[in-house]
Design a protein around this nucleic acid. Structure first.
Lengths: 136, 136
DNA sequence: GTAGTTGCAAAAGTTTTGCACGTAC
DNA sequence: GTACGTGCAAAACTTTTGCAACTAC
């Protein structure tokens, strides 16, 4: 965790470690508000300021420690970039399941080769929306 | 355009027609603000109220006339659902190119069959981010 | 005529920013 | 010691809502 920060040239601060820990413990993408709430639960700090959370999220995304996830909601969701996977969200109950698919990744690789104006893909967002077995 | 509205049970109003026209003319996904600005240019109306634009966007998405697009920006982008395609956005200059790929769609079809908890996919978001030839 | 639609203004929610103080290195 | 990081408060920006007036049908 500390190594990750050093590697990117960040100073090691309690706020950054705490935020990374929240993500490390969470199985789901989180909003800034989710993180603030989670940080308030910890008695060691009295919560880390909202502004710090937003600033940290923004710079972590720039440095590819976090990535944004599109849940078609008002607020922005984030998760660690360390594992590459996507999500299927139930339209009804909002259950989220992770998935990864070699076939999808392979097919995406073909897209740039067919593009006349683009030369490389750095990253992609992929979110599926459907019904889980309980809600179907 | 009017037929589309009738089909979904909407009353035909100037605001709805104007908003649909803005989308029909645009090659790119638009934010609520983009639409308000575009509507103000037309001398026939003095602009349609912001609240109406938001209300219209929300209901059009519910009725699948529009869909949300994830550009990892603060505000929400929308486009007509009539064509199914995705976007590649240049990380540097923000050029957007549309693409579609049978291979990707086919691969996505396989995902739900491998899922233990999901039974059907209704919709998906897919956005690629990379470098265009000019910016690479 | 009536249900549905709109404008306006106010509010709610999300994110950013300036500045003074604090801390990692 | 210095450059970077944080807290606080204010502001900016995006979206939603209540209500009265209006309009499509």
């Amino acid at each position: 965790m500390e190594d990750l920060l050093k590697e990117k040239g960040y100073k090691i601060t309690p706020a950054r470690l705490a935020i990374l820990n929240v993500f490390a413990k969470s199985k789901l993408p989180l909003t800034a508000e989710d993180i603030c709430k989670e940080l308030k639960k910890d008695k060691n700090n009295r919560g880390i300021n909202e502004a710090t959370v937003y600033r940290t999220l923004t710079s972590f995304v720039e440095d590819h420690i976090l990535k944004r996830v599109d849940f078609r909601k008002e607020s922005a969701y984030f998760e660690l970039t360390d594992e590459h996977h996507h999500h299927i969200t139930c339209i009804k109950c909002e259950t989220v399941e992770d998935f990864e698919s070699k076939d999808v990744e392979k097919a995406l690789g073909g897209v740039v080769r067919n593009s006349s104006r683009f030369i490389s893909i750095q990253d992609h967002s992929l979110e599926l929306f459907g019904f889980c077995k309980k809600c179907s």
